[in-house]
Write a protein that binds this DNA or RNA. Structure first.
Lengths: 117, 117
DNA sequence: ATTAGTATTCGACATATTTCGAACTTTAGA
DNA sequence: TCTAAAGTTCGAAATATGTCGAATACTAAT
């Protein structure tokens, strides 16, 4: 498109990445701490290895790898080899950026009144 | 997938809808008020007709219609015929829900310290 | 009733996405 | 060095998506 700046382009890429149920689940695993069964450490972002992220999802390793690549390419997650494994995590700035997209400060006075489940 | 609840399913649908640059632009037009050239009314959500939303985007009417249908099916926008036109708008609750998804209250103490562009 | 404006539906086509298995790479340990 | 563990890359197949034009539907005005 002509009227799409690079910023919006990346945003669309991120949303596209989150638009797949498998990838959304992966993203949630990385962003939600303090859930049953997980340890929550406020001093550190949540890190999971590729293998851990795929647990319970019945997809082939190659498919999992593909999805993580998409998440990374869109800018949603970071990855780095740690010995035999590859660790994944979310840069908190990404969460802020995305939350900010939906949080319209102008409309907020109105929206504050209505509760949302 | 087995471990995807209906809530997450709809969330994924919404993100998928926003993952297309044309649809993202439409969504932004509906969610951003107080931009140059627009009137901002805090007492009312922004409404645009289908035709207005398509202005400047070089896509066929049928394509525009298709995109709006996707946005509506995913739950992102509301639509209602108003005479000859069809008006579109965003339920503010939707914005809250989506912002809330990225806004992890537990991690917020941390994230609050780092500024994000 | 006809017409013009606004938007949707349908069918078709090109492209993109999801997924897998097989083969490969990288690392740690025996 | 050989092996096992953990991921990735590649190629192929099935499915989904984005796009258009032509035909259709709905509304307001003549």
């Amino acid at each position: 498109m002509s009227n799409t700046n690079p910023d919006d382009k990346q945003l669309a890429e991120m949303f596209k990445a989150l638009g797949n149920p498998h990838r959304l689940l992966i993203f949630q695993r990385l962003s939600n701490c303090c859930l049953p069964g997980t340890r929550c450490d406020l001093e550190q972002t949540m890190r999971f290895s590729v293998g851990q992220l795929g647990e319970g999802m019945e997809i082939a390793p190659s498919t999992l790898s593909h999805h993580l690549k998409e998440l990374h390419r869109s800018g949603l997650i970071e990855m780095s080899r740690q010995g035999k494994r590859v660790d994944c995590w979310i840069d908190p700035a990404v969460l802020n950026r995305l939350a900010g997209f939906f949080y319209n400060p102008i409309e907020n006075r109105l929206r504050g009144d209505r509760d949302v489940g």
